[in-house]
């Protein structure tokens, strides 16, 4: 990733992205607290947080999906740069556009799929058997939110890099 990062500066994450990063951090420590609390309480007596495995699964969705828009803004996606190290700035900008186009295809399909999955989970009103009977749609909803913000940021980056290519900066 090194070279392109030097050439194409990261974009400034917007407020929503910073907010989502913070939520993701809370979810991350939430997982650690839930598991540790139950390990300790189970060791002493009985686990006190019901459905801990199911809760951790829901939190995993937030931990993984919520920072995706921000890392896209900061150009933190991992790629193979062995074959393209020698390119000049213009060549690298063209590659960045290719990157965004391929990313947009993937993210568009993923967002479409996620939206379908969310509405299906809502319409069936399915839930995870347990003490809390956690509705399935919650996790799918969070998943979709993460992807939509990711897609939105990717589109902004594509426009931004395309303009800068046209300007020939």
């Amino acid at each position: 990733m090194g070279n392109i990062e030097l050439n194409l500066p990261p974009a400034q994450p917007n407020r929503a992205e910073l907010f989502m990063l913070n939520i993701s951090v809370i979810a991350f420590y939430g997982m650690a607290i839930i598991v540790t609390t139950n390990v300790i309480s189970r060791w002493i007596g009985r686990p006190i947080i019901p459905d801990d495995i199911l809760l951790v699964q829901e939190l995993m969705v937030i931990v993984i999906m919520f920072p995706l828009a921000l890392i896209t803004a900061c150009r933190l996606h991992i790629s193979v740069d062995v074959f393209t190290e020698g390119l000049d700035k213009k060549g690298k900008k063209i590659l960045a556009l290719l990157e965004h186009s391929v990313g947009l295809i993937f993210l568009f399909l993923l967002a479409w799929a996620a939206t379908n999955g969310m509405s299906k989970a809502w319409s069936t009103q399915e839930y995870y058997s347990g003490v809390l009977d956690i509705p399935v749609w919650i996790g799918h909803f969070l998943f979709t939110i993460g992807i939509l913000f990711f897609l939105f940021r990717l589109a902004i980056m594509a426009v931004y890099d395309f303009r800068s290519l046209l300007r020939g900066v």
Partner: peptide, 12 residues
Amino acid sequence: AGTVVGFFTPQQ
């Protein structure tokens, strides 16, 4: 076709 375990879909 496939193997369905009802436990996973307590609502449907």
